[in-house]
């Protein structure tokens, strides 16, 4: 496991928050996913060793919680709220719009690698639906026109990025 020194330092610090090491499973997985993009088998074994657990103890956590993933996703993660209040205000159409913009099916990486679009359950902002999270940021009252705008911004940022 190749983690940045800063991440390793955060990992060692967060373990001290708990009287029982095992409690640090979720924080460690978050830190690793933030750096690596997903949780690999190697990461599962590394966390298990770090916290003196069996790999299965970590694996069963990774497979249960919706936010942890075992495969890479697109550069930007677009999560559209599917639950009732947002659906009542149009989230199904918004999700479809994003998929059309990036040409991908739910949960898949777009052909250009730029985005993964998926439905998630209630994001606790039901009064300003439909709501969408793009990476860490919440976007409120996103109708189809706004979905197009947000998609255009993502695509423009991609074009502006220096090509490797």
């Amino acid at each position: 496991m190749n983690l940045r020194p800063a991440t390793l330092a955060q990992i060692d610090e967060v373990i001290t928050h708990y009287p029982v090491k095992r409690s640090a499973v979720l924080p460690l997985l978050h830190l690793i996913q933030e750096e690596a993009g997903y949780i690999s088998n190697e990461a599962i074994e590394w966390v298990a060793q770090k916290l003196e657990l069996q790999p299965i103890n970590v694996y069963e956590v990774v497979t249960f919680y919706p936010m942890f993933r075992q495969k890479p996703i697109g550069r930007r993660h677009i999560k559209v709220c599917r639950t009732l209040s947002c659906a009542l205000t149009g989230s199904y159409q918004v999700c479809e719009q994003f998929q059309k913009e990036f040409g991908c099916a739910p949960g898949e990486i777009s052909p250009d690698g730029e985005a993964t679009v998926e439905f998630v359950e209630c994001l606790a902002s039901c009064g300003t639906g439909p709501v969408v999270m793009i990476d860490d940021d919440l976007h409120e009252k996103v109708d189809c026109a706004r979905a197009r705008e947000l998609s255009d911004q993502i695509k423009a940022a991609a074009r502006a990025r220096p090509q490797p």
């Binding site: 640090a24 979720l26 997985l29 916290l51 103890n57 956590v61 249960f64 919680y65």
Partner: peptide
Amino acid sequence: RGAGAYICGEETGLIESLEGK
């Protein structure tokens, strides 16, 4: 921080989650 599971709102589920399970 939780990780996207509604059942973590239930107090004993929350406790298990905080124990790393």
